[in-house]
Design a protein around this nucleic acid. Structure first.
Length: 911
DNA sequence: ACTCTGCAGAGAGGA
């Protein structure tokens, strides 16, 4: 029986005399988890789980012997799972205890990766450093990855030479940055691969092996996840590119294999053999002791090792839950043999952390230490949220996942087709109307219906229509797709923050912490002659020695201003990075820049490069996209000769981009970026320019924390000397802009020209306002609809909106000139069923950054305006500033009048 | 209570 609950008090660890001698035990007071009884862990097919106490009772679980080590880690409030526990009656109360078959798992919903455990067993500090500073681009690692890829290909039956050629080609850019030539790399891989091939041949001679490569495994019981290099007859095989002439595998390698064994056990396996393949071992390296010729070392995994691995995992989970930083004393590793010793000492010294290796150098100033602490915590909170997403894979039913738009379920599997190179193409049909946040190009968990316990594979969505096309390493009979929760972004945020504080130069930090003002060079040049503020913005951007901050309200020409500034920098011979959070914003800014450069004949378009994935980059910018595959020298030349490089901030944190440096970084939509996110871009440049509007929507974060304020917003207050606000807008009729201007911009926003101020629907060809009902003839109107009281949908509003669209069409408008904005996604789909397809209907959040001739806003609130979505007034600012010529607000007047800001909006709309 | 974009991935190795 499995016992699961929350630690309810202090844990008592002591020794007792038993018939077997002296034993250690820990008594853990356990309370049932929030809504379930103790022990009510997720139902599993084997019937091994039972409810052991009802309601919120507290009981005691006794952990024996080695498990007391995990008990010492427990703090009240942590979750605990004990598998195969036995029940005992004690003074009329049911208590529980571990048995010889038990595992004790601390915070089981915290998913620890196998790599983390492998690093941790070497030294907990190594685990921490790896997380904090990432692994830079280096040849041994790239080579290791290549050998693994070739190994996978061999298992899938691909020809060796073909595989090597293809895999080396794919990594052209990385190899180029490392200064490697394809021939030399191929030769090295061939050496490693020969060992693999020979060993595989041996296996084939003796028996029929069943293989799986690169299997993604998640364990809800042990709280571990990872990707096994290969699985042979249910047992893990780990590939190592290095050499090991000892008789035994390295301990950390054994631990790694044991992790996969645990994961496989949960998937129905029962294995006690692990294989390590040291591919640099060759016949020439005959082991003196054993006469070993083969690169493979098999070892038997005892129960003890598997339990040890779970205890290691518990150490990580407990430390992360408690928010502690490891010191290295947790392990008995010797620092003098450690490759990371210097880094470890420097980090310890700079961050004033206790460390076994000792400290070097001066500690950062207190305010920087405090900043580090705050953001470290915030980023780790985000990571916990990603872990919660994982937990939902098994905590929620397929239907709940589908309702949350996190999964596509009940797909009809159509076919699997082998692709060149050993991969597979999978096809499935989805039932009509099914919706999800999955998009083409996304990485997903493709499963046969159960992504955790069933067979699942990491796959890429190639096409997403009624028919879905996927590519994957193995042929899963896919009937369900789940969003794959990735920690990549969190990892990169942490590294960006680390780099900003520990690698950033002092002058930059003086600016970030407000200890110095930004300085500007003298420039006598007019860049934009018809808009003083834009000209001032470009001047500041170009002349800043440190930073410039451009505040651009809706329609004020932010993107044009950026493009003009970059052109000026390029003309001065500088190398410039152009970045933003979203791919769309990067592509928009890049498009504007290309127009500028073309007009000015300023730069060969060949020297503009867009870095990003094929699915992220828009079709229009695809010609500028840097291809990663190819001849190394060519790939690297294309990147390094580029005078302008455009990439999202997430990509700026990639290993390839971190090798690049720039004179200036320009970040668009900077108010939508977290501080560490912004740092990922500006870390790469000598000086930076942030462009944005903190009166529009803030960064998207999962947890409520310090990440919600952008660096842009903080610096705007800190550095008035660096700021410029654009005030002339080129989008809205004067009547439309009035409310936003007064409410959000102190009345400073004004039409750039009389034409803009006076623009109405009548200016559009074939459109006449006279054909509209009188109540819609003003540029701003309000339609009072008493809603249907639905929480997130309102069909009364939706029906009314459909009628409004017909009215606008009757007045001569094209459907594509009309946009409908609603606060909730549910209402967006409700409206979509009422209006024709070519009318753009979307959430406020997704409308940010675009505009339309006519905008209809559906407030979707009846009676009152309660709910977090209405609390952030920046959202109405975005909604109301999208139209050029006409704005229609649809909603319940009584509800809107219940909030002062919305009430003022109502007065303005009704005039 | 809601909004929701990025990322190839996790692990690759050196005494």
């Amino acid at each position: 029986m499995h016992v699961r609950g929350t630690v309810a008090g202090e844990v008592d660890v002591r020794s007792v005399a038993t018939s077997y001698g002296e034993s250690e035990l820990a008594e853990v007071p356990l309370r049932s988890a929030d809504d379930a009884g103790i022990g009510e862990s997720p139902a599993r097919g084997d019937g091994g789980t039972a409810t052991v106490a009802d309601g919120r009772e507290t009981t005691t679980v006794t952990l024996w012997n080695k498990w007391t080590e995990s008990a010492e880690l427990l703090e009240p409030g942590m979750d605990l799972l004990v598998t195969n526990a036995k029940a005992e009656e004690y003074q009329g109360e049911t208590q529980y205890a571990t048995t010889g078959d038990s595992y004790v798992v601390v915070e089981p919903s915290f998913l620890v990766s196998v790599t983390s455990i492998r690093n941790w067993v070497e030294c907990p500090r190594l685990y921490y450093l790896n997380k904090l500073s990432g692994v830079p681009l280096n040849y041994p690692v790239v080579k290791g990855t290549l050998v693994h890829e070739v190994f996978g290909d061999l298992l899938r039956g691909r020809d060796l030479e073909e595989s090597i050629d293809a895999r080396v080609e794919e990594r052209g850019l990385q190899l180029g940055l490392l200064g490697e030539t394809p021939d030399a790399v191929k030769e090295e891989i061939r050496e490693n691969a020969t060992a693999i091939e020979g060993w595989l041949e041996q296996g084939r001679l003796t028996e029929e092996d069943s293989w799986r490569s690169e299997q993604l495994l998640i364990s809800e019981t042990f709280g571990i996840r990872g990707r096994a290099d290969a699985v042979r007859r249910g047992a893990p095989v780990e590939l190592k590119t290095g050499k090991n002439l000892k008789k035994e595998p390295r301990f950390k390698d054994k631990v790694q294999a044991a992790c996969y064994a645990l994961l496989l056990e949960e998937h129905g396996g029962d294995v006690d053999i692990g294989t390590l393949l040291y591919t640099k071992n060759s016949a020439l390296d005959r082991n003196e002791e054993t006469g070993d010729l083969t690169p493979a070392k098999e070892f038997t995994m005892g129960d003890g090792l598997l339990k040890y691995v779970v205890r290691l995992r518990n150490e990580i989970a407990a430390m992360e839950t408690a928010g502690e930083i490891p010191t290295g004393y947790e392990a008995d590793a010797k620092c003098e043999y450690c490759f990371e010793q210097d880094t470890c000492m420097v980090v310890s010294g700079r961050l004033d952390q206790e460390s076994k290796a000792g400290q070097i150098g001066q500690s950062l100033p207190d305010e920087e230490l405090e900043y580090f602490d705050r953001f470290y915590r915030a980023i780790e909170e985000e990571r916990r949220e990603v872990h919660r997403e994982y937990a939902k894979l098994w905590e929620q039913t397929a239907e709940e996942r589908a309702d949350d738009d996190r999964a596509l379920i009940d797909l009809e599997f159509l076919e699997k087709r082998p692709l060149e190179g050993g991969r597979w193409e999978l096809r499935a049909r989805r039932p009509g109307g099914a919706n999800s946040k999955l998009r083409e190009g996304d990485l997903v968990l493709a499963s046969d219906g159960d992504p955790v316990r069933g067979s699942s594979e990491l796959a890429r969505i190639e096409r997403l229509d009624d028919e879905i096309v996927l590519t994957a390493d193995e042929p899963v009979e896919v009937t369900r797709l789940d969003v794959y929760p990735s920690e990549l972004t969190t990892d990169r945020l942490l590294v960006a923050m680390h780099d900003a504080l520990l690698k950033g130069d002092e002058r930059r930090k003086d600016i970030l912490f407000g200890r110095a003002d930004s300085e500007f060079a003298e420039i006598e040049e007019t860049f934009i002659s018809n808009n003083d503020r834009q000209n001032e913005a470009v001047t500041k951007a170009v002349s800043a020695n440190d930073c410039a901050l451009i505040h651009g309200p809706p329609g004020t020409g932010k993107t044009y201003t950026i493009a003009r500034a970059i052109r000026a920098m390029v003309e001065r011979g500088e190398r410039v990075l152009l970045s933003a959070f979203t791919n769309r914003a990067v592509d928009n800014a890049l498009e504007a820049l290309l127009e500028q450069l073309e007009d000015a004949d300023a730069l060969d378009a060949d020297r503009v490069v867009r870095v990003g994935s094929e699915s992220g980059v828009s079709d229009g910018m695809e010609p500028y996209r840097l291809e990663r595959a190819g001849e190394p020298a060519d790939r690297v030349a294309e990147l390094e000769d580029a005078q302008v490089v455009a990439a999202t901030t997430a990509t700026c944190g990639s290993r390839v981009m971190k090798e690049q440096s720039f004179d200036a970084a320009l970040v668009d939509e900077a108010a939508q970026l977290t501080e560490p996110g912004t740092c990922a871009a500006i870390n790469l440049a000598e000086r930076f320019v942030l462009v944005g509007d903190h009166e529009q929507l803030p960064p998207v974060v999962r947890a409520e924390n310090d990440l919600t304020e952008s660096l842009f917003e903080r610096l705007v207050d800190l550095h008035p000397e660096a700021g410029v606000m654009l005030t002339h807008q080129y989008r809205m009729n004067q009547r439309i802009q009035a409310f936003a201007s007064n409410e959000f911009y102190d009345g400073q926003l004004r039409p750039a020209t009389p034409d803009v101020a006076a623009r109405t629907l009548d200016d559009l060809e074939g459109v006449s306002r006279d054909r509209l009902h009188e109540s819609l003839q003003d540029p701003v109107s309000f339609v009072d609809v008493e809603g249907d009281r639905g929480q997130y949908t309102d069909s009364a509003e939706a029906a009314r909106i459909a009628a409004l669209i017909e009215a606008y069409e009757a007045a001569g408008l094209e459907r594509s000139e009309i946009g409908v904005i609603a606060p909730f996604r549910a209402q967006v789909s409700e409206i979509s069923t009422h209006v024709p397809d070519d009318v753009a209907v979307d959430t406020v959040d997704r409308f940010q950054g675009s505009s339309q001739e006519v905008i209809v806003v559906s407030f979707t609130a009846t009676g009152s305006l309660e709910g977090p979505i209405f609390e952030d007034y920046r959202r109405i600012n975005v909604a109301l500033t999208r139209p050029k010529r006409a704005l229609v607000l649809v909603g319940d007047a009584a509800a809107l009048a219940s909030d002062p800001v919305y009430e003022r909006m109502l007065e303005w709309a009704r005039r």
